[in-house]
Write a protein that binds this DNA or RNA. Structure first.
Length: 417
DNA sequence: TCTGGGGTCCTAGGACCC
DNA sequence: TCTGGGGTCCTAGGACCC
């Protein structure tokens, strides 16, 4: 059996833990630049605020209905996630952390009362972190996902834990679950399936496997097996990332090359730090620019370039140089840009790297980067940085930012009695 | 005025090899 | 006129996830 555990309205719940006056009130969390809604408490959902809603269109609603509005506070959410995951990991020898607010647990070989076990986990996480979770338990990962949805959405359910452990329960679940809500069925596939009369997960499992393979590739086929109770999607053990990206929407449209170059260098530097943290070297850097897609009348230009490095490296200095080289090839001064990004890809392990006979990363950078990372970790992010980086010119809009209650001693909560 | 960010996997088609 | 067959690797783009 597998469990899929996820945190309810995770970001909104994190804000509530440290601000109990928000209990029972609508809460929303906004994306970077306070752009759009990326998390909503149940009360906010009931007000009809949709996922992804542009914040400026809902300001009146926020005001009128007393909605607690927060700028995204990722250091806080990341730390709360680590706490929740750590507690859950004690319930199984194998945990797959699937996203910031979700994980799978492998219960293979355990013969216990799964429902009781789930309720225990739930109480434990709630008591130690204040975060409410929902739990689905079933013979495959895809069915565990479905069970989780039942725990959360099935009319009348309130205990947050559902177990699919009999054939009747499996069939009942599949007959209830809409096809677009099946894990792994996206918009495109849902439309394809609807067109041939598939409305429920149950209809999907009754399609012929050859049809599924032909129109939905092997991915669809293993999903179908999973829903039929045959495990086909293995647990993923923690591994190094295969790509690392930093992309940002700017606070305004920008045309100045110097300014964009500064952003590209800063993004590259952030990527490089993550790259060194997972002890990888990188062979390719992708740089992209985007014009403002909401200005439909204006000519759009969304170039990207893949720069192949002559050697593998994790040096911020070298990566930044190649990224800027890429930028110069795609930048055109007649456009204003709203978004840009840097993606590192094609990694190899730093400790297994075989240097080339001719051209290699500058060996002096290794120590330099080590010291830079150590100082930045000890004191403050970006105390040591490249000369071209200039944070003063790029202030992200964060008008509703909560404190870093759990990761910054200056922000620790003070309780007055 | 104001509209997010970071990942993974699969496939078709081209380049290249013998 | 007629012009093979079977592989691998790489990449761009699409689909999906949260």
């Amino acid at each position: 059996m597998y469990a899929l555990i996820d945190c309810n309205n995770f970001y909104a719940s994190c804000e509530r833990v440290f601000n109990p006056s928000l209990m029972g009130k609508p809460v929303v969390v906004l994306s970077n630049n306070d752009g759009c809604v990326i998390a909503r408490s149940n009360e906010a959902k009931k007000l009809g605020i949709p996922m992804g809603a542009p914040a400026y269109q809902y300001e009146a609603v926020f005001e009128r209905r007393g909605v607690g509005v927060f700028s995204a506070n990722f250091p806080l959410y990341g730390d709360m996630s680590r706490r929740v995951m750590s507690i859950l990991s004690s319930y199984s020898p194998q945990q797959e952390i699937y996203s910031i607010d979700e994980c799978f647990l492998d219960f293979s070989g355990m013969s216990i009362d799964f429902r009781e076990y789930g309720l225990k986990m739930r109480a434990h996480v709630e008591k130690w972190t204040g975060i409410p979770i929902s739990i689905g338990i079933a013979p495959t990962k895809a069915l565990a996902k479905a069970a989780n949805r039942i725990a959360k959405k099935f009319p009348g359910r309130t205990d947050g834990c559902h177990v699919i452990d009999t054939e009747e329960k499996r069939i009942k679940a599949l007959k209830w679950l809409d096809i677009e809500d099946v894990w792994g069925i996206g918009r495109r596939n849902a439309a394809k399936l609807r067109a041939i009369g598939v409305r429920k997960a149950w209809d999907f499992v009754n399609l012929s496997p050859s049809w599924v393979q032909k129109y939905m590739t092997v991915t669809g086929l293993s999903l179908q097996k999973e829903l039929n109770g045959i495990p086909s999607i293995p647990m993923e053990l923690p591994e190094k990332r295969q790509s690392i990206a930093i992309t940002r929407t700017f606070d305004a449209d920008k045309g100045d090359v110097e300014e964009i170059r500064e952003r590209i260098v800063t993004f590259t530097s952030m990527c490089a730090e993550k790259l060194r943290f997972q002890q990888s070297l990188c062979r390719k850097v992708m740089v992209f620019l985007e014009t403002n897609r909401f200005k439909g009348k204006e000519m759009q230009y969304n170039p990207s370039i893949l720069v192949r490095l002559p050697f593998a490296t994790d040096s911020t200095l070298e990566l930044a140089k190649f990224a800027v080289g890429g930028l110069k090839q795609i930048y055109k001064e007649q456009f204003l840009y709203k978004r840009a990004g840097v993606i590192l890809m094609d990694f190899e392990d730093a400790d297994r790297y075989q240097p080339s006979l001719f051209l290699n990363s500058n060996p002096k950078h290794k120590l330099l980067m080590e010291k830079m990372d150590a100082i930045n970790r000890k004191y403050h992010k970006d105390v040591v940085r490249l000369g071209v980086q200039d944070f003063t010119r790029h202030q992200m809009r964060q008008e509703h930012l909560s404190r870093q209650y759990t990761t910054n001693i200056r922000d620790i909560l003070v309780v007055e009695i």
